[in-house]
Design a protein around this nucleic acid. Structure first.
Length: 551
RNA sequence: GGCCCGGUGGUCAAGUGGCCUAAGACACCGCCCUUUCACGGCGGUAACACGAGUUCGAAUCUCGUCCGGGUCACCA
């Protein structure tokens, strides 16, 4: 055995497998030509983040359009940041948003696929096997520096305006001998394993990013950490090993990774792996005091995808909004194919935005309104119930008390309407929007518009209740108002009124406003005729009589 | 600060040297439709960061400046 081999045995005595073992264990995938293998690899550090959802969606759709595979992998190599139930939060979140997972973690506790385990903390032996091999080949070595040692070096570098980091002459243990290592280990000093970088700052690495195009950077020359002192790998090393063994073809991740890509490329090459294609996704930004910045977990409630669920956005609305950000041709496609499943959209890297998009709630709302406007009353009822059950129990009680009635409320201007209402963007708007339709929520409280005299309003309401017939259709309903109008000095016809406003107190439209206020206490509502039919004659008369009394 | 990436209306964006007098969508404003609102229809305000070059011709190519973002860990 030479010194490197002795060192490898000294450092990782329990590792008895070789890389070949794993190469054979995880054979190439049998997929069609051009099929992309993508993945999302979240850390279980909390709830599902908007950016993670976005990344997952893009990876998912990129795989789908080539009949490829999309898998999940849990990057739990930092136990300090790990959160109880983190895996569940994230995977359940993805499921909730309809991101189908072919392989890896498909729920908080279930894994499928033959390339596992899909959790890095369970792969320690695999990483160590490869590290051991690297040490044998002289491409890795132990480093015994403490945090303080490293900090001291950094200070010196900063003072001398030298690029900080563990590289070149600052890589203290780069040429450590077997005997030195042996005595340090025997004295119980903890150590990490570092890469013995073969790169030089003088040379360039060039790679073709699928989204950003050609990127040219100095080669990595840093002897970065491969294995932490607890024997668990860093992200960089785990990425190289896992994506190779799992045969990922396209690594699509946040663009904060661009700057470490030279590290990854060096690793892949040194390990003898094929370098995957990289696609660096721009983050979703937010406007904060006039400045653009990445949406932050800490500061922004909408960073947690759960926020949208609580607000009552349909998962599909959020997804389609994200699709418009992900692919600039998605909106055009959606217009041409209004009812096709978004999963049938053909994703193309060239149509991905190079710079980060500002999160636009207006746009989300518009997309969401369109989605909801396509629902019929039963679907609407069913969805608003499932939302309310979880987030607004008191409203839920009201809704389910009389399902048929609730549905008839939502059917107004919706079922059989050629222009269905496009007014609700999220379910938490429903209670307030329809409050006057529910006894438990309705409060009679309004002011007459200034141009209407109380006496006229009263007279109108009295005359109207004498002729109201719930069986009247919209036309007949309004005709009756028009008939009463001239008797009170109002124009029956709006045009007539507009032509000579001085001749009238107002128009039939103003009178319908009086009725609307009396019935709903609102100036604006969906079709009043339908509202009255749904409310029922008895309730309507109760409200009208009450109005007459207080006027 | 070093290294990367980016910069077209308020937002998302089309644009690959002449079809640009710069598309479309969201938002905003106006008009029409109309029992109100919403929808819908029609119209409007509003942009190539700046400066040099290359070229007959530049949003598009080059360089510089400025601005924004990312990154420089035993975090991912």
């Amino acid at each position: 055995m030479n010194d490197n081999e002795l060192l490898a045995e000294l450092l990782l005595p329990d590792i008895d497998k070789t890389p070949d073992y794993y190469e054979n264990l995880f054979p190439t995938r049998n997929l069609g030509e051009g099929a992309r293998v993508t993945r999302v690899a979240p850390s279980p550090t909390g709830y599902l983040h908007l950016g993670t959802l976005f990344t997952a969606l893009v990876n998912r759709i990129a795989a789908t359009t080539t009949s490829g595979v999309f898998f999940t992998r849990i990057e739990d190599t930092d136990k300090k940041r790990e959160v109880e139930g983190g895996i569940e939060n994230i995977i359940d979140g993805l499921n909730r948003f309809g991101i189908t997972i072919d392989e890896g973690f498909i729920s908080g506790s279930e894994e499928t696929g033959i390339y596992g385990p899909y959790q890095q903390s369970k792969r320690a032996e695999i990483y160590q096997t490869y590290v051991k091999d690297l040490i044998k080949k002289g491409f890795a070595y132990p480093c015994f520096c403490t945090a303080e040692d490293l900090e001291a070096v950094r200070k010196v570098q900063e003072e001398n305006k030298i690029r900080t980091g563990y590289h070149g002459e600052y890589a203290k243990h780069r040429n450590i001998t077997y005997n030195e290592a042996k005595s340090l280990i025997e004295s119980g000093k903890p150590f990490v394993i570092r890469l013995k970088s073969q790169g030089s700052e003088e040379n360039k690495v060039i790679f073709e990013d699928m989204i950003k195009g050609k990127i040219e950077m100095p080669q990595n020359d840093e002897d970065f950490v491969l294995l932490k002192s607890d024997g668990i790998p860093t992200y960089h090393f785990a990425h190289a090993i896992d994506d190779h063994l799992m045969h990922t073809t396209h690594v699509m991740r946040g663009d904060e990774w661009i700057s470490s890509t030279p590290k990854h490329i060096e690793l892949f090459k040194l390990l003898g792996f094929k370098v995957p294609k990289y696609a660096h996704i721009s983050p979703i930004m937010k406007l904060d005091n006039g400045a653009k910045r990445k949406i932050s977990k800490r500061k922004d409630p909408e960073a947690a995808v759960h926020f949208f669920i609580e607000e009552g956005y349909e998962a599909i609305s959020v997804i389609e909004y994200l699709m418009t950000i992900a692919a600039s041709d998605f909106e055009d496609w959606r217009r041409a194919n209004p009812d096709t499943d978004y999963k049938d959209f053909k994703f193309n890297f060239k149509k991905m935005s190079v710079s980060g998009a500002l999160f636009d709630q207006n746009k989300l709302n518009d997309i969401s309104k369109i989605k909801i406007s396509k629902l019929n009353s039963s679907e609407f009822y069913q969805r608003v119930c499932s939302w309310a059950k979880e987030f607004n129990p008191s409203f839920y009680e009201i809704l389910v008390k009389n399902p048929d009635y609730s549905k008839s409320v939502f059917a107004i201007d919706r079922d059989n309407a050629d222009k269905p209402r496009k007014d609700i963007a999220k379910w938490n708007e429903v209670e307030d929007f329809y409050s006057y339709m529910f006894e438990e929520l309705y409060k009679s409280e309004f002011e007459l518009p200034e141009n209407i005299q109380k006496s006229d309003a009263k007279a109108f309401l009295e005359k109207y209740s004498a002729v109201y017939d719930p069986n009247d259709d919209r036309r007949a309903w309004f005709d009756k108002i028009k008939e009463i109008a001239p008797e009170l000095g109002f124009a029956a016809d709006t045009k007539e009124y507009k032509a000579n406003p001085e001749n009238f107190k107002g128009s039939a439209g103003d009178l319908s406003t009086v009725l609307r206020l009396s019935i709903t206490s609102r100036k604006n509502t969906p079709d009043l005729c339908s509202i009255m039919q749904v409310l029922g004659k008895e309730e309507c008369f109760k409200r009208i009589e009450n109005t007459i009394k207080v006027l």
